[in-house]
Write a protein that binds this DNA or RNA. Structure first.
Lengths: 203, 203
DNA sequence: AAAGATTGACCCGTCAATCTTA
DNA sequence: TAAGATTGACGGGTCAATCTTT
């Protein structure tokens, strides 16, 4: 395999240097034909060793968290987590209704995705569509009684999943640090003010 | 909807009390028919205010990160991030080959998912299947030259995406804290030793 | 022309069989 | 009987039209 990182040598893992290790993670080096010239060359052009390590851990955590959330939500609620978010949002909105575009913005979905989802939720009877009056282009998603009932039923189970999986293991400092980390990363994205803004409204 | 958090009391958000706010996030309270009795009731049975806040931030960050990774990987590499992981893993394995079950374990996929993915990767010519010799049940996935070339091409772009999106905004302490957080959450799951073990091998 | 929203085609992933070998 | 692996059906999401209203 090529030797990637530039200098045949690299940081210590990977042969493929190239930065493939970036995500390739988990495996020790295979090949043994590293060019001799290298010793302790560091700083990849790409990610530092520590960054790679953190990235790998993040991916693993994310995978675990996601599987757990989706599995539990499917079992307890009979729906994907994304649908739960939609119901939850509607439940807290005035009159339990929200325009599609606003709803999409809040949950962070594309309009297309939301439209498909609401179609499905309508079929199951948890959401209903209504025509907007002011702007005839608008459609309004309304949470039905059945939808609200379902939500009320599922919410505590979901909370338990989240709490036990993500929060129970963390101590106070880690919790605070986690928030600061997420916020920092989000703030670096100019296109994410919506998320931060909406959240802050509530705080 | 009721006044939200309970208390009109509660902790600050939510009406539906029910814990819906758990994830419903982002929105102020709508309705107003809450039972008057409440004052400063705190500690939800579910999540504390801080935990809810962190959970929301995490979801928003995750969404942003994922979109960016998948979009870039699709544009630069013409494949989903999951496929990149497979190629990357193979590239670092001895002889660029790995048994399906082992590969699945490493990248954290179900056997079914991996099988579908490899089928696709085989169609594109980046991976090839081989029969295992020892155990005739086994199948071995091999990275082709074309696959390796593709990987080498894409890797630095991917690294750039990850670095700029996740790591550039973080300082040293945050980076360290992030790692500790991910590790802590993973360690709490007894079924995740595989991830941690494999990672540690490399460190 | 742009915003709000929907639709259909297509890809990815899950789940429940199924098949082969150990 | 169990492990390794595959398959097909199905649901969810993205993308590129499309349609209507502003």
């Amino acid at each position: 395999v090529v030797d990637g990182d530039g200098d045949g040598c690299g940081t210590g893992h990977g042969d493929a240097g190239i930065g493939i290790e970036l995500v390739s993670e988990f495996l020790p080096d295979p090949q043994g034909d590293l060019p001799p010239g290298c010793d302790t060359a560091l700083d990849d052009p790409w990610l530092t060793d520590q960054q790679q390590q953190v990235w790998r851990r993040y991916l693993a955590m994310w995978r675990m968290l996601n599987e757990r959330i989706e599995r539990d939500m499917q079992q307890d609620g009979g729906m994907p987590h994304a649908y739960y978010l939609i119901l939850a949002m509607l439940s807290e909105s005035p009159d339990r209704r929200l325009r599609m575009n606003r709803l999409a913005e809040i949950v962070g979905f594309s309009q297309s995705r939301l439209s498909h989802a609401v179609t499905r939720l309508e079929q199951v009877g948890w959401v209903q569509r209504e025509q907007a009056v002011a702007d005839k282009r608008g459609q309004i998603a309304v949470l039905t009684e059945a939808g609200h009932a379902r939500l009320v039923e599922v919410a505590p189970l979901h909370a338990e999943t989240v709490r036990s999986t993500m929060f129970d293991p963390l101590d106070e400092q880690q919790l605070a640090a986690f928030e600061s980390i997420c916020t920092t990363i989000l703030q670096a994205r100019p296109d994410c003010e919506a998320q931060l803004r909406d959240i802050d409204l509530q705080v």
